[in-house]
Simulated assay, not measured.
Amino acid sequence: MKFVLLVHSTPQPWGHPTGDFVAEHQALPAEQRRQMETDFEALLTEMQERGEFVTAEALGDPASSRLFRWADGEPIATDGPYAETKEQFAGYFLIDVVDRDRAEELGRRFAGPGETIELRPLMWPGGEEQNVG
């Protein structure tokens, strides 16, 4: 079952890993931040060993985005970000797990101070969620 873990965050300045640039994470004691980094690296290793990690990408600053919308019968381009919002889409991890319970476990383990993790199933081309059996 494939899911995507969407990372929503607003690092200042924009950078990755986002936790290094988020006030809530920076406010933690240094030892706790180091332990969280160690735990996250161990999680990624575990996912790779189990064949659950498919791919991941960090995204650039939303201010550098270009938006394309349909207006008056044709696409028009405008500068980003998409919307005024507290958090922006910062990156994603594509995972392939045995069931939704495992996906939710990983979502909880990905969550960190100053970030929101959104778990969403992928869909087949016909519109059906891939994890629907």
Rank of each mutant, 00 (worst) to 15 (best):
A77G: 15
E41L: 09
R108Y: 11
L28V: 14
T78V: 00
E104H: 11
T85S: 15
K2G: 03
R33V: 09
G112V: 03
D72L: 12
W70Q: 11
L59G: 07
K2A: 03
T45V: 11
S65Y: 06
Q35V: 10
V7H: 10
Q88I: 02
D79E: 10
T18K: 08
V98P: 09
D79A: 10
F89W: 14
P17R: 08
T45R: 13
I76K: 13
G19A: 08
F110K: 03
V4H: 03
T45I: 10
F93V: 11
L94Q: 01
P113I: 15
T55Y: 03
E104G: 04
F93H: 03
W14G: 09
H8I: 13
E118Y: 02
G107M: 13
P17Q: 10
R120Q: 15
G80P: 02
W70A: 08
T18Y: 06
P11K: 12
L122G: 01
E129T: 14
N131T: 02
P121Y: 05
G51A: 04
T18W: 13
Y92D: 00
T38L: 09
F68N: 06
L94W: 00
G60S: 10
L43M: 11
V97M: 06
M36I: 08
E104R: 05
A103N: 11
I95F: 00
G91D: 08
P62I: 15
L28F: 09
V7N: 07
W14F: 08
A77D: 05
M47N: 05
R33D: 07
P29Q: 06
A30T: 07
V7L: 14
L106C: 13
A30G: 06
F40W: 13
E31S: 15
L43V: 14
E49M: 10
L5D: 01
L28D: 05
P17C: 04
L59Y: 13
D99L: 08
F89C: 02
V22F: 00
F89H: 02
L44R: 09
A42I: 03
I76E: 12
V98C: 01
D99A: 01
L106D: 01
P81H: 05
L6T: 05
D99S: 07
Q32V: 14
L67E: 00
D39Q: 08
P113W: 12
T116Q: 15
E118T: 03
L106P: 06
W70V: 04
M1A: 09
P13Q: 09
A23E: 11
P121A: 06
I95T: 10
E84A: 09
E49V: 08
L94R: 05
I95R: 00
F68W: 05
L44I: 08
D39H: 08
V54G: 03
L94C: 02
Q130R: 14
W70N: 04
R34W: 13
A71C: 06
T45K: 12
P113E: 14
E57K: 12
G133E: 12
A63G: 14
K86I: 04
F68L: 14
E24Y: 05
L6D: 01
P75W: 02
F40R: 10
G73D: 07
V7W: 01
A111P: 01
T45N: 11
M123R: 01
E87L: 15
